[in-house]
């Protein structure tokens, strides 16, 4: 009887270990990458070039589409908000507490995840299939320094910059909507926003953006590395990576909300 119970408990433990192995693996990889942020060898001309290219593909190339989306959202959200909320204080809280701190990072992370995370996942998986990792190893080029950190730093920078840009565009659009459509003075609108602005919220927003950027690039890299040397493993790897990126986005969103409302 006791042996059966021990076996049952063992099975539960094994299932738990198996179920969380991916999470543990990701966290261990994240720690490893994070520690390399402080390694001087990470910051060399080759890594900088990769970083610039990544930032170009992730943030600059997407900019026209991104700004267009931000302006459309700005008009929609501000139009609805000004119609629905007559009290300027509530409007300020809605714009700062929801649009800036929740909606802006969410839209940005979705766009970056859909465009860049999938590309990074595919790129790493293709490199693995082509045995290009062996090339780098052969020439003593550290994968974390040269391949991973520039991409992850790009994720962090892009998220912070694009989210801020999105928020600024939405708020500027709000200024237009409020003054041109609803006749609110610029001073009133700005004062309303200022009254609703909490420095702590902005700090949490920036940390959240950086965390989003870190994980939506780290996870595709890790999953891409797990591809085998067969071409057919590439789509499977991308599929797994994108699902895990989605789970990471939801998890970070929930955690940041908990921290904000504690």
């Amino acid at each position: 009887m006791i042996s059966v119970m021990i076996a049952a408990i063992g099975n539960i433990g094994r299932a738990a270990m198996l179920g969380t192995s991916s999470l543990r693996g990701t966290l261990a990889f994240a720690v490893r990458v994070f520690l390399n942020f402080f390694d001087r060898r990470t910051y060399n001309s080759a890594s900088l070039m990769v970083f610039i290219h990544q930032l170009y593909f992730t943030s600059v190339q997407i900019l026209p589409l991104f700004l267009f989306v931000a302006v459309i959202f700005g008009f929609l959200i501000n139009g609805m908000a000004f119609n629905a909320v007559k009290n300027m204080d509530y409007l300020g809280r809605l714009l700062m507490g929801f649009v800036v701190t929740e909606l802006s990072p969410f839209i940005t992370v979705l766009l970056i995840a859909l465009r860049s995370s999938s590309a990074i996942n595919t790129e790493i998986a293709v490199m693995k299939v082509n045995r290009e990792m062996s090339t780098l190893n052969s020439f003593r080029i550290d994968l974390i320094h040269y391949l991973f950190i520039p991409r992850i730093l790009n994720g962090v920078f892009s998220m912070v910059l694009l989210t801020s840009l999105f928020a600024l565009v939405v708020l500027s659009t709000g200024l237009l909507v409020s003054s041109l459509v609803f006749g609110t003075s610029v001073d009133t609108y700005v004062d309303t926003l200022l009254r609703s602005t909490d420095v702590l919220d902005i700090v949490i927003l920036l940390i959240k953006c950086a965390t989003f950027g870190f994980f939506i690039t780290l996870i595709p890299i890790r999953i891409g590395l797990s591809a085998s040397e067969e071409l057919t493993s590439i789509p499977i790897s991308v599929l797994n990576g994108m699902v895990k990126v989605f789970v990471a986005i939801v998890t970070i969103e929930v955690l940041s909300s908990i921290i904000r409302f504690i």
Binding site: I52, S59, F157, S164, L168, I202
Partner: peptide, 22 residues
């Protein structure tokens, strides 16, 4: 490099200006 630099400079300037204004 120029495009990325311009993007980082303008966006950072906007962010800094907004934070500074607030």
């Amino acid at each position: 490099e120029f495009k990325v630099g311009l993007f980082i400079a303008i966006t950072s300037l906007l962010i800094m200006a907004s934070i500074g204004y607030v």
